[in-house]
Amino acid sequence: MSGEKETPERTAVPADAAYERALKAFEGRPATTGGTGKDPVNEPMIRHWCEAMGDAHPAYRGPDATAPPTMLQAWTMGGLAGHQGRAAGAHDALFALLDGAGYTAVVATDCEQEYLRPLRPGDAISYDSVIESVSARKTTKLGTGHFVTTRTDVRANGELAGTHRFRILKYAPAARRGPTERDAGGPSRAKRPRPVVNRDNAGFWDGVAAHKLLIQRCGGCGRLRLPWLPGCNGCGAAEWDTVEASGAGTVFSYVVMHHPPFPAFSASEGATGAAGPYAVGLIELAEGVRMVSNVVGVPYDRVRIGMPVRLEFLRVDEELVLPVFRAGDDPAAGADPAAGAGGEG
């Protein structure tokens, strides 16, 4: 049989040494002491087992029947009700420690059994088990977790009848998004990212909050600049003032964002929230500077270079207002699919 050793694997996150020490401290501790089988070995359970497995071995039937040896563990199982009244032991404490770290799922990986004497109907089952080992953290296809190996001695009427070594993986399931999380992409759930406001651009965002689009104007050479910067990239002067944009502009270029879906961006204007493609426009303002924002009022696939747009302010949520650009009722809008050669940015 494949041995006890597990090949150490690299993990993405450094292991917490104190946590691993706490896990290791469980090695050698009794998991179950004086456990008793809920039922003695009995013919009905043997028959149900053989029916499920399709096992027609003659030794498991008749007046001198024995139980299939591989039933060894079944006689110790707690079943639907579990083992009532058993004092919480090291096994429960270990599982609580693993559950608490997010390793909530369990899967059995190895089972090694030795059968010393056959079990017969009427045999009373008792057992003791010990935690043999707790592995370092491993990353598997199922997820990251720890292997826990226990060894159980199973007795029939007090006589050792078999041993059972069992290895499970306690792991954190690989993330799977539930349907509610996946579908709830409406504006109420998915918020736009917040702008990063600092002393160099605070004036811009103050203007937006007041429904004004403010363009910086260099105090040295008069050059307009957007986005806001601490100094002029033409003459280097640090002085500046602002001019308010008229709000007229045209689509200088654009891209359509298909993937990944960002519900916060695509669910504007009362859309139902389905995350779909959306257009990101590079808008040239009438004043000559350009800025990136959404093009609204037109389907994403009808945005065209040269399309006239008009500034408006979109209240995204209770905290955030953004400047966006609405395509007008220009009859040429979307008339020429071949013109959609935008791709800059």
Binding site: M1, M53, P69, T109, Q113, Y115
Partner: peptide, 29 residues
């Protein structure tokens, strides 16, 4: 795993005859 174990046990005794007795079985899933 208990079903897998039981099916492997059945396979062995099916193939090795009605008088055979399983002494040890170690499986990995």
């Amino acid at each position: 795993i208990l079903t897998t174990n039981g099916l492997v046990g059945r396979y062995l005794t099916d193939r090795l005859g009605p008088r055979c007795v399983l002494r040890r079985l170690a499986i990995r899933l």
